[in-house]
Design a protein around this nucleic acid. Sequence first.
DNA 1: AGTAAATGTCTGAATGTTGAAACGGGGGGA
DNA 2: TCCCCCCGTTTCAACATTCAGACATTTACT
Lengths: 258, 258
Amino acid sequence: MPISMAHEKGQIPTNLRLLLLLEEVSRAGVPVTPADLVDALGLPKPTVHRLFNTAEEAGFLQRDIDGRSFGPGPRLRRLSVNTLSSQRLRTVRLSILNGVVEKMGETCNIAVPDRDAMVYLDRIETKWPLRIQLPVGTKVPFHCTASGKMYLSSLNPRYLDRYLASRTLEEHTKKTITDTARLKAELTKTRKRGYSTDDEEFMDGMVAVAVPIIDDQGRLVSTLSAHAPLQRNDLPALVANVETLKTAADQLSELLLS
Amino acid sequence: MPISMAHEKGQIPTNLRLLLLLEEVSRAGVPVTPADLVDALGLPKPTVHRLFNTAEEAGFLQRDIDGRSFGPGPRLRRLSVNTLSSQRLRTVRLSILNGVVEKMGETCNIAVPDRDAMVYLDRIETKWPLRIQLPVGTKVPFHCTASGKMYLSSLNPRYLDRYLASRTLEEHTKKTITDTARLKAELTKTRKRGYSTDDEEFMDGMVAVAVPIIDDQGRLVSTLSAHAPLQRNDLPALVANVETLKTAADQLSELLLS
DNA sequence: AGTAAATGTCTGAATGTTGAAACGGGGGGA
DNA sequence: TCCCCCCGTTTCAACATTCAGACATTTACT
C-alpha cells in the first residue's frame, strides 16, 4: 500500500470513537448535548449516547449544570495538562530542524522506517508559498523516496534481498526505479557516499536528499531529508547542502543518547 | 453499582481503552514503548500494540526518532489546547486576568509553549488607548520574550544546552540577547528569582514581565505576563507588580486541577 | 560467538459493541 | 388543549475487537 489512506468513509474504528467524541467536545469549546454531535460525528444516536455515558462515568466528561449537556471533565483536563507539560522534549528536535530549513530554504523531515514504509515524524516547512504537502504521520514507500532508499541501503544484504524478493516495485512516476538490479546498484552507491537522492522518483517535479540518523551502535534509526520542487531547486543544488544535513543529523543522533 | 468500581479485575470497556492508553502516555511525560504500558494498563501484549498503531495512524500519538517509542501526536496536542480553552475554564481565567489588568493597568496574557514558540491563549487589554497589538493565537519566539524566557528557564539544563547549540538567536531589536552565554546567565537569574523580564528585546519601546503557571507536580504549563509601552510604564514599574502576577498565577494553577 | 530474555506478531473462537427501527415523552406553537 | 417534532431509550442480529497461545524477531548477557 503506497500512501496510507485510512478509512475512506467506511467505518470509524470502535476504539477511536470515544476519542473523536472528546475531540469534538473540546473543539466546540462550550458544553454540548449528545444530539449536537450526532451529525458532527456521523454516528447513530444510540451510539453517541452510550459514548457520552461511558465518558462521563470514567470522568472524562462532566455534565453541565443544565443536566443535559457535557463539557470536559477533570480527567480530560488532567490529561491535557500532562500532554502539554511533556512537550519539551520535542523543542530541541524542532529547533535543529529549523536551523536546517533556515540554511537551506527547503522543507525538511525526520522519518523512521516502519515495517513496510517510512513514516514522517516531524517536519518544518519552508516559508515559500510553493510547498509539497505531506502531513506528519503519512507513509511513503521505501523504493522510490530518498529516506526510504537511505533505509534500504543500511539493511543487511540478506534482509534486503528478502525484501526485494517479496515485493514488486510499484511505479509512481516515469523515473521510479522498478528494476531490482538497478535498485540494488543505486543502494550500493548510496551506502558508499553516505546520502541518498530522489530524482522525481516518487512525485513528478519533486527532488530530495536524505542522510541517516544513527544510534550509538551505528545503526540507522531514522533519516533526515530535504525536499524541493524543481521549479525552485534541482538535485545538484540540494546535494550541495549535504554537509548541512549531516551536521544536523549528528546533533539528532546525540539526542538519542540522553 | 453505586459509584463506578471500574476494572477491579473484570474488564476495561473497549471504548475506553485507547483513551486510557493516551492517559498513560501523557502521564509518563516521555516517549514510551508499547511494552512499557503492558503492565501499567493490565492488557495483553497484542492489544496494546494494536492500540498504539491505531492511535498513531489517527495522529493522536507520534513515533519518537528511535522508531520504537511514542509520545503525544499533533492531534492530541490540539485536543489538549482546546480542552484547556473551553468556555467554563476560560470564563474563570478571564476574570482572574481582568483582576490583574485592573490592578496593574497593563495588558496581560496567558501563553503556552507550542512546538518551537510561545502561543498566546488568552489576553485582556488595558483600557488605555495606547496598546500593543498582539492578537490571541500569535506566536512569539522563546529567546526574546518574557514568557519565552520563563519557559526556557524551566527546561532541564541538558536540553537547554542542546536547544541553544542548535539555534541562532535572531535579533529583533538592538537589545535582543543574541549571545548564548549571556542568555544562559539571564535564564539562571530568571530561575532563581521566579520571574522573567523583557527589556525591549522583542519590540522597541515594549517591556514585559512573566511568571510561571505550574501544575501540581511543579512543571511549567503556561505563563502569565504583562506588557507595557515605555511611554506609560518602565520595567521597574512592572516588576513592582510581580506579586500581583504571582498571586494570579497561583489561582490559575489551581484552576488546572479542580 | 552463543544463548537466554524480552519484544513484537499472528491466528481464530469468544466476547463486547453496534445501529436500524420502533417507542415513550416532553416542550413549543397554534 | 392538541398536535407535531425532536430528544433520548430500548432491542437484538450483525459486526468488530479481543486475547490465549504459539511463533518470529531483536536485544542483552555470559
